[in-house]
Amino acid sequence: MGLREFDYGPLVSVERGTEVTTRERKRQWNELRPLFMRTRMVSHAAGSSYLEAENSKVICSVNGPLANTGGRTEAIERAKISCYISRTKFCGLEDDELEKRATTEYEGIVCRALESIVRVEQYPKSTIEVHVLVIEDDGSTLSAAITCACLALADAKIELRELMACCSVVNANGQLLLDPTLDEEKEASGSVLVSYLATSGKVSTVFQTGQLAYDEMAQAVELTISGAREIAVLVRNCLRQRESKDRGL
C-alpha cells in the first residue's frame, strides 16, 4: 500500500507488495466492483447498514428521530438531519489525502443528499442523526457513504420518498473510470459524483471536483447514473431481503 521512505542509511526504501488492482485484473472502465450490503448491523441504533466494495468498507448508523433538546427558540416544522463522518486510523489514507477530503464538506454533501429523500416534514421538532464510519478507504467512499446512509435510514423505518443510490466516476489519464479505487482517485484530474433516485429516475446530488471538459462531463454523468442505477437495484434487494427475513418468509 505505498512506499515508506527513511532518511538514513543505504537502505532507503522498503516497499510493501503492491496488490494487483482489479482494474489490472481486467475490470472494465464502466464496471462496478462487486458490492456487498447488509442492514441491521448494530442492533442498538434505530437503523444501521454496512456496505463493502472490495476494499472500501463503510458502516452507517442512524439515530432518531430524536427530540430536539436544549432551548431552541425557533419553531422547527421539519426534522433536522445531522451527519457525522469518522474514519479509522488505518483506513488507508495518508495525512495529505485526509486533508483533501474535508470532512465538514463531505458531511454537508451527505446531509443535502439525504434531505432530498427523507420526508422531513413528517418529523417536526426532531433531529435525525446519521453517523458514518469509514473502516477502509479504497476509493468512492463518499458515494458509498451516501448509499449506506439511505440503507440505514430505511432500516430505521424513517419515511423516505424513494430510495437513493450514489456512484462516482473519475477522469484519469484521459480515461473515464467508474467506481474508482483509491489509486485511481489519486491519479485523477477530475471526478463526478451523482446520487440517483430510484423511483423517479431523477438526480439529486451532483458533486464535481477537478477539471473536466464539458462533453467529458456529460459523458461522466451518464456513466455515473448507469452505475448508480445498478446499485439502486441492489439497495432495493437488500431491503426486501431484510423485510422477508423479519417476517420469517
Binding site: 424513494e162 430510495l163 430510484a198 423485510e243 418468509l249
Partner: peptide
C-alpha cells in the same frame, strides 16, 4: 424469531 402468525402471506414493500 418473530411472532409471525398473523403476517404470513401479506405483501411486503420497501420505501419507494
Amino acid at each position: 424469531d418473530v411472532d409471525r402468525s398473523s403476517e404470513l402471506g401479506q405483501m411486503c414493500v420497501v420505501a419507494g
